[in-house]
């Protein structure tokens, strides 16, 4: 356990080796082993949207009895619910449903946009995709659907989004 002050050639050599070893460890693990994020024959599908669902109900007239219950300055003729519909999305790949998700509206009053992000790893090659989306609780089924056959190259990223201004469900 003794630590004698030793400044001979061997001590300097020892220190050189010590710092060299430290540099080697830093050098090696700053780039090795390689990390395989994705297998060579795989591609990625990213399904994501940021969309505000339809309001859960239409505006309705306020009755005279309801008007009478509030102060004159607070009276209004219509009540329009702020709450938005949750958005339901489903994704089928080659006939099999691989994703079912309900995105709730954000905000304390549930009046904000619904958002989602999912990353799916699929084999590269040709796939038939069916994307269904429902953004209105008042409709019976899905009110948006997109069917497409895509050919994905290895490592390619396909983004499925929902943009009403571009016709609804988009693939890019």
């Amino acid at each position: 356990m003794s630590e004698r002050l030793n400044r001979g050639p061997m001590a300097w050599l020892g220190q050189g080796l010590l710092y060299g070893l430290f540099a080697l460890v830093i050098g090696v693990f700053s780039s090795w082993p390689p990390y395989h994020y994705l297998d060579r024959d795989q591609a990625l599908i990213k399904l994501s949207f940021n969309h505000q669902g339809q309001v859960v109900a239409d505006c309705r007239d306020v009755s005279a009895q309801e008007q009478a219950k509030v102060q004159p300055t607070m009276r209004r003729t219509k009540i329009c619910p702020r709450e938005r519909s949750p958005i339901t999305v489903e994704l089928d790949i080659d006939g099999a449903t691989v994703l079912k998700h309900v995105a709730q509206p954000s905000g304390l009053s549930r009046d904000g946009a619904s958002t989602t992000y999912h990353r799916l790893q699929v084999p590269a090659g040709s796939h038939t995709l069916v994307v269904r989306l429902k953004d209105d609780v008042r409709s019976a089924g899905f009110n948006h659907e997109r069917r497409a056959t895509v050919t994905l190259k290895p490592a390619q990223i396909l983004v499925i989004d929902f943009e009403p201004g571009k016709g609804g469900i988009t693939l890019q």
Partner: peptide, 29 residues
């Protein structure tokens, strides 16, 4: 300095958001 000269840090290929980087020389630290 010796490490920088012996194993200079180089960039990967430019970022491409349409393609996922399959294999990376990751800095594990």
């Amino acid at each position: 300095l010796a490490l920088a000269l012996a194993a200079p840090v180089m960039s990967h290929a430019p970022a491409d958001l349409a393609a996922a980087p399959a294999t990376l020389t990751l800095d594990w630290f």
